[in-house]
């Protein structure tokens, strides 16, 4: 019984959507019926080209997230370990974290050109700062008793780092990764709507908007949402599998 609860929300959502459509509170041109959007989904998937868009967007998100982890995770660990260094950089990190990455996209285009590099660069920028911040916070918030206990056991700094701090940082790091993955997707899809791309979910959404294929546009938005949902699900799974102690 419990297993079907997750279906209730989406079903209610579709019913409300249908009711709003039927009542015509919103012009039907701007809000097509769920059936129309569903038919557009089938058309999109049967044409196969949507798989290219999905694949390209996924590839860009994957590359930016991987590079963000490679850059952000070690920096976050170091900043968390050397609290004074983190304290001296905290204002800068918070400042850059507060800049909407899309606002920096023109700068990235200027430096990296209009190809994939600028899109991935903007996503790396957004994701890296989140990973640095969360990893560092994970280390800084380590329970002091654990460090004291390890010190009394005669642990070296390296042992304290490897056996305590690294593990303590994991729950917060995973939270950072989840947020970073969502942010990467947001930035990639948004930048795909601008210039310099031949494929991608963002490109497809904006193309459908230009030609007033509204149900197609909703269908691609749905696919984008489902992709983001799946991405989030992967991190929830990782959290349950590898950070099993979190919240217990």
């Amino acid at each position: 019984m419990k297993k079907i609860y997750f279906l209730i929300g989406p079903i209610v959502f579709i019913v409300i959507w249908e009711l709003v459509y039927l009542s015509q509170i919103i012009n039907n041109f701007f809000l097509p019926s769920p059936q129309e959007v569903f038919l557009s989904l089938i058309t999109l998937f049967s044409s196969l080209s949507i798989f290219l868009d999905l694949g390209i967007t996924a590839q860009r998100v994957f590359i930016s997230l991987t590079l963000a982890i490679i850059i952000g995770f070690p920096i976050g660990l170091l900043l968390g370990y050397y609290e004074k260094v983190y304290a001296s950089l905290e204002v800068l990190i918070d400042f850059f974290r507060s800049i909407p990455p899309i606002a920096l996209f023109p700068l990235f285009v200027l430096i990296l050109g209009i190809g994939d590099s600028s899109k991935i660069g903007a996503a790396i920028f957004a994701a890296t700062l989140l990973i640095i911040f969360n990893t560092a916070k994970g280390i800084i918030n380590t329970k002091k008793t654990r460090i004291l206990a390890a010190k009394l056991m005669g642990a070296t700094k390296k042992q304290i780092f490897g056996k305590i701090l690294l593990w303590e940082s994991l729950p917060q790091t995973i939270i950072g990764l989840r947020t970073a993955a969502s942010f990467s997707l947001v930035v990639i899809v948004a930048t795909e709507m601008f210039i310099g791309t031949y494929a991608g979910l963002g490109r497809r959404i904006i193309d459908f908007q230009y030609i007033y294929n509204v149900s197609g546009m909703y269908a691609v938005i749905l696919i984008t949402g489902l992709f983001g949902f799946a991405l989030n699900f992967v991190f929830i799974w990782l959290e349950k599998r590898y950070v099993h102690w979190y919240g217990k």
Binding site: K143, T145, R146, L148, A149, L152, M153, G154, K163, I164, W167, L170, V243, H244, W245, K248
Partner: peptide, 19 residues
């Protein structure tokens, strides 16, 4: 030396490593 000394903390729960 650390080999010959040990400490049990009042907040024992926090001193254990849940991972």
């Amino acid at each position: 030396d650390s080999n010959s000394m040990s400490y049990i903390f009042q907040n024992y729960r926090d001193s254990l490593l849940p991972w």
